[in-house]
């Protein structure tokens, strides 16, 4: 069991690193949000499940599983609220973006402004 835990923790740590590289490298807020949120949520959940595999069902393992479920529920919710808030507060998209479906929905029609 501890070998499965170590493999899960290793993969999770690498996912965290890739998510943070995306957070530094990508051009605007929306790209950074999707890269960082998806990669880091999956990576941290894999670390926590790996901790639960490594220690078995004692106090650490059960708390790790509870924490993984909690992060899996709250992190996408926070990212969605943040994307909506930043779009409504008028943060512009990157100039290479090809579409803005949320603005089309809000204005009730097609908006053709290809960059």
């Amino acid at each position: 069991m501890s070998e499965i835990g170590l493999v899960l923790i290793s993969v999770g740590v690498v996912f965290d690193l890739f998510g943070c590289i995306g957070l530094v490298r990508l051009p605007d807020i929306y790209n950074r949000l999707q890269a960082a949120t998806k990669c880091v949520t999956l990576g941290t959940c894999m670390i926590l499940i790996g901790v639960a595999f490594y220690t078995g069902l004692d106090a650490i393992g059960v708390k790790a599983i509870i924490c993984a479920v909690f992060i899996l529920l709250t992190s996408p919710t926070g990212a969605h609220a943040l994307a909506r808030g930043s779009h409504r507060s008028g943060v512009p998209l990157w100039e290479g973006s090809v579409g803005d479906k949320y603005r089309e929905d809000k204005e009730g029609g097609e908006v053709h402004e290809e960059a």
Binding site: G19, C20, L23, V40, T44, L48, S75, A79, L82
Partner: peptide, 12 residues
């Protein structure tokens, strides 16, 4: 976003 991601890293 960076603060949120940092909090998730601290959990791991």
């Amino acid at each position: 976003v960076a603060i949120d991601i940092f909090g998730t890293l601290v959990v791991g």
